[in-house]
């Protein structure tokens, strides 16, 4: 199935065949005033897998994703990338470790082209003196964007048209491809199909599968249980700020997932 790409790292005894998680969080604590959003939450992402993160509203999904993508700093706990402890002070720190995020609002600049959006904050400059003056290398950025879109099988009519002129599914695809272009390890996707119709949802789901085929691990946050069961290689359930259950593909049906989300099932009693 999937090769262990990361040798020479001590491998803890895990139910997942002894592989090292590409991203691992343990004992994550985060409070907002008196509200404990995360209570020693644990979470693992294995290379080349789609991991679903599910939970009822208020279970702490968003907070956990923000912590793991560098948007928020936890009050306690450890985060490891390929077995080495790391600290994320900003989304850029996380990006430096190959971890990217597709935000629910997509974080696209609607008036700019897909290529311009791909390179926000990472603009390519022309070589030499022109580049030092800040002259953009629009050609190179367009080519790289076209390559990335093609690699993931996304077709756009015009790379120079503003993102706002694209359909919802195309916008989602641009956001996903952008994240994958810069994240070689893990991409978080927050409700990537929540705002889409049936056909577009189908397309984005295929895109998510292709991302996995490119060797990038996907963390899928979704309320759509059939989608989670169809896509995810592993499902981790959060409830009241802690993980309460982990299932591998085929181990859980919709009823079991809902039961875990609502507290009827708890694998990790503390």
């Amino acid at each position: 199935m999937i090769r262990c790409l990361y040798k020479g790292v001590q491998v803890p005894a895990e139910p997942s065949g002894g592989r090292t998680p590409v991203l691992r969080a343990s004992g994550i604590v985060k409070s907002f005033g008196h509200v404990e959003a995360l209570r020693e939450a644990a979470f693992e992402v294995y290379p080349g897998e789609i991991t679903a993160l599910i939970g009822d509203n208020g279970a702490g999904k968003s907070t956990l994703v923000k912590v793991l993508s560098g948007v928020m700093q936890p009050d306690g706990g450890t985060i490891e990338v390929d077995g080495s402890p790391v600290q994320f002070g900003s989304p850029q720190d996380a990006a430096g470790h190959g971890i990217g995020t597709v935000y629910q609002d997509l974080a696209l600049a609607p008036d700019l082209s897909p290529a311009a959006n791909f390179f926000i904050g990472r603009e390519l400059l022309r070589p030499g003196l022109l580049g030092r003056l800040g002259w953009l290398d629009a050609g190179a950025m367009n080519r790289r964007t076209a390559e990335e879109l093609q690699r993931l099988g996304v077709e756009l009519k015009d790379l120079n048209a503003p993102v706002a002129s694209l359909s919802g599914g195309q916008r989602q695809s641009v956001a996903i491809c952008r994240a994958v272009a810069w994240a070689e390890r893990v991409v978080f996707m927050d409700e990537p199909t929540a705002a889409l119709g049936v056909v577009q949802t189908e397309r984005v789901m295929r895109l998510i599968t292709r991302v996995r085929e490119q060797g990038v691990a996907v963390v899928l946050i979704s309320h759509n249980m059939p989608q989670v069961i169809e896509l995810a290689d592993r499902v981790q359930v959060l409830r009241l700020g802690s993980r309460v259950a982990t299932y591998e593909r085929g181990q859980a049906d919709e009823h079991l997932l809902v039961a875990a989300m609502t507290g009827a099932v708890n694998q990790e009693v503390r």
Partner: peptide
């Protein structure tokens, strides 16, 4: 030239279009 062809101009337009997207991307 600065507005259309340089990083300064691109940041200007990106911030105007979606300043939150610019901020999250490290601008």
């Amino acid at each position: 030239f600065a507005l259309a062809k340089t990083r300064f101009g691109r940041y200007t337009l990106t911030i105007g279009s979606n300043h939150e997207a610019a901020r999250r991307s490290g601008v």
